[in-house]
Design a protein around this nucleic acid. Structure first.
Length: 598
RNA sequence: GGGGUCGUAGUUCAGCUGGAUAGAACGCCGGCCUGUCACGCCGGAGGUCGCGAGUUCGAGUCUCGUCGGCCCCGCCA
């Protein structure tokens, strides 16, 4: 039998949030509204924990205070919406609840209004229950009633507010840019929006407002920022959603260090005011080369050591065939030395071998140092010279294990970077309560794409080369470094940007290097090239992943925790069940015919 | 597109090498209870074992396919 509550709120106005009343308010008549979290019915007395976003207050239904209210309260179940009016009272001393901010007081109810009955919730809303994520996301409105879930959104809001305050203080102007815009080549797959007025043509949702913010600099805005939704139609990860929020910043007449210092000030404020942490400025800064060499990645997690070591020189003439073969083929032998790693079992070593295979490594060699002995499948092939080389490079001691990967550059670094993180986690080497920020600078401007058989931008096609490397553009384009900088936080790329090309000839040269001919450039970026030719100032900026920052600052394991209504890994909104089919009439209006059924 | 993992009551899970009527806790329903606060006590209801094939005398359990959640590779300037 469905319960039906018909009371109306009427003139009742809440006195304060449920989590707020304290002993100083005792003796006042108060009204609370909210959701019944639990009801404890003692037959005579009924206690209800009334909850709203601020917390809990205990309300007491006593037949000697109000027989009518006590009678009504028997109907109350979890998640019903009720309003109570009564006397805020001090709890009897032996019943004070120290766990609760409101634990010294309770409301003696004189009158209750039953505003809306709830069905039995599909999962418990207390903090003790671990619930499957798909259930939580389907009933996200219930999930968000849980304080833990709400806290993530709250932290995110406070972070964004502080960012706005900071940038406002520095004279940045928030300007909105179009969401219906033009598809641009390079980069991720676009989300497309069909045009009704021009059948067969499409808008694209922005992957970022990159070109608009540059054009705002040409317009003389000087300092722009925006907190803006961006869209990329690529497969999802724990730290990747198809729509995500970017803090987009652009400034004129600046060098990389101006952006870096501005951002460091912002980070210092966020960490101070949100986490009570004093960042040491300037932040650690690594060149891209150094980050690759020491950590194997351009977004190193510098909360712990376990740095990569290069053994290439040591194994040039090695009897270990896989090593010498790879080296002769132009590859490298690198590895890492794990203090105390000698305890890893054979099974664990096999698992680690399978782990690096994920990243293309054909094998994982290892040496255990135990009681002066070298336990290793390759031990018998190692010369004395190699042994002493290994010890010098690693400083390894008894009880340690040394891993080796031999492959070409991307595979070696990729495999070891991931192995490093994996071992760091597995062996508990990563301090969980620390935040480590690091700038990575001087990225290469270009890399060669074997798949596309041309140069592609490492950052994006509008990134400026380092002044001293400009001559190399004509002679050795792959050696050119760029004025690009990324900020990594605990091994996650949270921000990235660059100084842009502001001279049209240089921009044309760059597009040429990317294999984009003049006609194509004109069709796709004509408006930008034209804008650059009308007195574009030197400019540059940076963009941050707001979701990622919020995720790390709130200690969440997934972006979904800091997004109110996230998509599942298959890019479905489990609440609304988007995407969905549409009425054939809508398709006709758009001049669209689908070629896939369902 | 590929690899891994999970899917059993409303929820979280157990269910062995295939074997009798699929269990527990919490939640839910009914009863009792005036100081509980994850109340307590007594009783009860509740299952398309994700779905579909197959193997078998017999499938929650094995095989194949499929759908969905999560993690990863590819992809993501």
């Amino acid at each position: 039998m469905d319960r039906l509550f018909t009371d109306q709120l009427g003139e009742w106005k809440r006195s304060c949030y449920c989590g707020e009343p304290r002993a100083v308010g005792v003796g006042r008549e108060m009204i609370f509204v909210g959701w019944a979290q639990t009801r404890r019915d003692h037959g005579g007395l009924i206690f209800v924990d009334l909850r709203d976003r601020s917390g809990l207050v205990q309300v007491v239904f006593n037949p000697e205070v109000s027989a009518a209210s006590h009678e009504k309260a028997k109907q109350i179940r979890s998640e019903d919406v009720i309003a109570v009016r009564g006397l805020l009272s001090r709890r009897p001393p032996e019943t004070v609840n120290r766990q609760l901010g409101t634990g010294e007081v309770e409301l003696l109810v004189h009158e209750v209004k039953l505003l809306n009955a709830s069905q039995v919730p599909p999962f418990p809303l207390d903090d003790y229950a671990e619930v499957n994520e798909n259930t939580r996301l389907k009933y996200r409105y219930l999930d968000l009633r849980r304080p833990e879930s709400l806290a993530h959104l709250l932290l995110r809001y406070r972070m964004v507010k502080k960012i706005r305050d900071y940038l406002d203080g520095l004279g940045f102007i928030d300007v909105e840019t179009p969401v219906l815009t033009k598809s641009t080549p390079e980069g991720a797959r676009d989300y497309l929006v069909p045009s009704r007025i021009y059948p067969g043509k499409f808008y694209a949702l922005p992957q970022s407002p990159q070109l608009f913010k540059q054009i705002l600099m040409v317009a003389g805005l000087d300092r722009y920022y925006q907190i803006v939704r961006c869209f990329r139609d690529e497969d999802l990860r724990a730290d990747r959603q198809p729509e995500f929020t970017q803090l987009d910043i652009e400034m004129s007449f600046i060098q990389p260090k101006d952006v870096i210092e501005m951002v460091e000030g912002m980070m210092a404020r966020l960490f101070k005011e949100l986490k009570g942490i004093d960042l040491r400025l300037p932040l650690l800064r690594l060149t891209w080369q150094e980050a690759r060499a020491r950590y194997g990645t351009d977004k190193p997690d510098v909360r712990f050591g376990l740095e990569l070591k290069d053994f290439s020189a040591c194994f040039q003439q090695s009897q270990v065939r896989v090593f010498s073969a790879v080296l002769q083929g132009g590859g490298m032998v690198k590895g890492l030395s794990v203090p105390g790693g000698g305890t890893l079992s054979r099974k664990e070593l096999d698992d680690l071998t399978a782990f690096v295979a994920n990243y293309g490594a054909k094998g994982l060699a290892w040496i255990k140092l135990a009681d002066g002995e070298w336990q290793s499948p390759i031990a018998k092939f190692l010369s004395d010279q190699e042994r002493s080389g290994i010890l010098t490079i690693t400083g390894a001691k008894n009880g340690d294990i040394i891993f080796f990967v031999a492959a070409d550059d991307p595979v070696t670094h990729d495999a070891l970077a991931n192995l490093r993180l994996h071992l760091g986690e597995k062996l508990g080497l990563i301090p969980q309560d620390r935040y480590a920020l690091v700038w990575v600078v001087d990225f290469p401007l270009l890399e060669y794409s074997a798949e596309e058989k041309r140069h592609v931008s490492v950052h994006h096609p509008f990134t400026a080369p380092l002044d001293e490397d400009i001559p190399l553009l004509a002679t050795a384009p792959l050696k050119v470094r760029s004025k690009a900088y990324d900020l990594a936080l605990n091994g996650v790329e949270v921000g990235g940007g660059s100084i842009r090309i502001h001279q049209v000839e240089m921009q044309k040269q760059l597009l040429g290097l990317l294999g984009i001919d003049a006609d194509e450039a004109e069709a796709k970026f004509g408006f930008l090239l034209e804008a650059l030719s009308y007195g574009a100032p030197p400019h540059g900026g940076i963009a941050f992943g707001i979701d990622r920052l919020a995720m790390i600052l709130s200690g969440a394991k997934s972006l979904r925790e800091v997004i109110a209504f996230p998509k599942s890994q298959r890019a479905v909104c489990l609440l609304t069940e988007a995407p969905s089919s549409v009425d054939p009439k809508q398709l006709r209006e758009l001049g669209i015919k689908t070629i896939v059924d369902k």
